[in-house]
Nucleic acid binder design. Structure first.
Lengths: 208, 208
DNA sequence: TAGATTGTTAATCGATTAACAATC
DNA sequence: TAGATTGTTAATCGATTAACAATC
């Protein structure tokens, strides 16, 4: 079975975005040297990445068909099937993500939110209800969701993750800035803003 | 000179968060096997990471002083000095990040926002003004900022990044889901939600 | 055909992991 | 002292890069 490294997986959406731009500009065929130049990766890496998801070879002297490549990447990334997610924590960040227009085209549909703040419960974000966290276990089975997106403070993240997994969540997307533990059967991705900032600050300091 | 890999830099804020939790619980000393168990990294890796930032050795049989380690990490990460940033794009995500309470304690201060939407210009987020994008060049020198945070749609990201760099931005934190090009003298970090989602979706599919 | 680009195989590089002597 | 944990040095692993023959 083919395996994909984390770094590699992260590159595919960037390729896809670029290819869609090319398609919109009317470009029909793309080569890896061309992509390499524009995206800042090496051409060998791009070739290898594309070979890994594509079942048909590129054409020497020309490259690859842009449209076919877009379709390949979209289905590989799951953009053509819908996955349902639930937002836990409807604060600024949680609400902003519910309003993020790109998730739908990536096949991710946020169907509801949960919060403990009485002022928020009963309200809506983008037409999706905000429920009370205390109803989580009862409501989860009806929502048909696979993923829980965690936008609560660090102090509560492990607690709500445990709850979500107990209810049946198979994937956790954590935006809280701390480490959380999950069983092996559950997929976890953490988007840690503090980690990103650390990389940026360090790079700035090195250049000074 | 010491060098730090990107992965390594990303771990430091996670260590710090955990150590602060320990300190709040009254724990005085921590060992790498203890951290390894809790955070899911190997103890060798944690030892190496901590050795890399710390100028004083740990104590065999005991470990390291929690408080000293926190201070070391905070100054390494720049949490004890203030860096100013400007938000470009005051939509849902941009506004949410301006409201994110943790940046201040990480030494990042967002001093103003820019947008092209007439309905937003002149308003405020958390007491910070939203200016017109057309005033960007004029206002930048007065803001004393180093970093531009990019929260505009993919179609406009390269354009506003070019503007920011021309005005004098030394660091770019990009939240748009596409690749952007910057000169070598500028630091760039991209927080790409599409990339994170790709890793999560793939992991979910593999487990099915 | 010549030349550009592909796919494959080998070499390099860097990060993580393992091994182990030193130390409190 | 014995035992746990450290720091250092070597081995492993995996990803990226380089080299090159195959092909349109």
């Amino acid at each position: 079975m083919k395996t994909y490294s984390k770094n590699q997986l992260q590159r595919y959406p960037i390729y896809l975005k670029y290819l869609k731009k090319l398609e919109a500009e009317g470009v029909k065929v793309v080569s890896s040297p061309m992509m390499a130049k524009e995206l800042g990766y090496s051409e060998e890496q791009i070739r290898k990445d594309l070979q890994n998801v594509s079942d048909r070879p590129g054409r020497p002297h020309k490259g690859r068909d842009v449209h076919v490549l877009i379709e390949t990447l979209e289905s590989f990334l799951g953009y053509r099937t819908s996955t349902k997610a639930v937002m836990i924590g409807a604060g600024h960040l949680g609400a902003a993500l519910m309003n993020y227009p790109n998730f739908e085209e990536m096949g991710l549909s946020i169907v509801a939110a949960f919060d403990t703040d009485p002022a928020k419960i009963g309200a809506e974000v983008r037409g999706k209800a905000i429920y009370s966290m205390s109803d989580f276990e009862t409501l989860w089975p009806h929502l048909d969701a696979e993923i829980a997106i965690i936008c609560v403070p660090a102090e509560e993240s492990q607690k709500v993750v445990d709850l979500a997994i107990k209810a049946g969540a198979k994937g956790i997307w954590n935006f809280a800035p701390n480490h959380i533990n999950v069983p092996k059967s559950v997929s976890l991705v953490t988007t840690n803003l503090a980690s990103s900032l650390a990389v940026l600050s360090h790079s700035l300091n090195v250049k000074k």
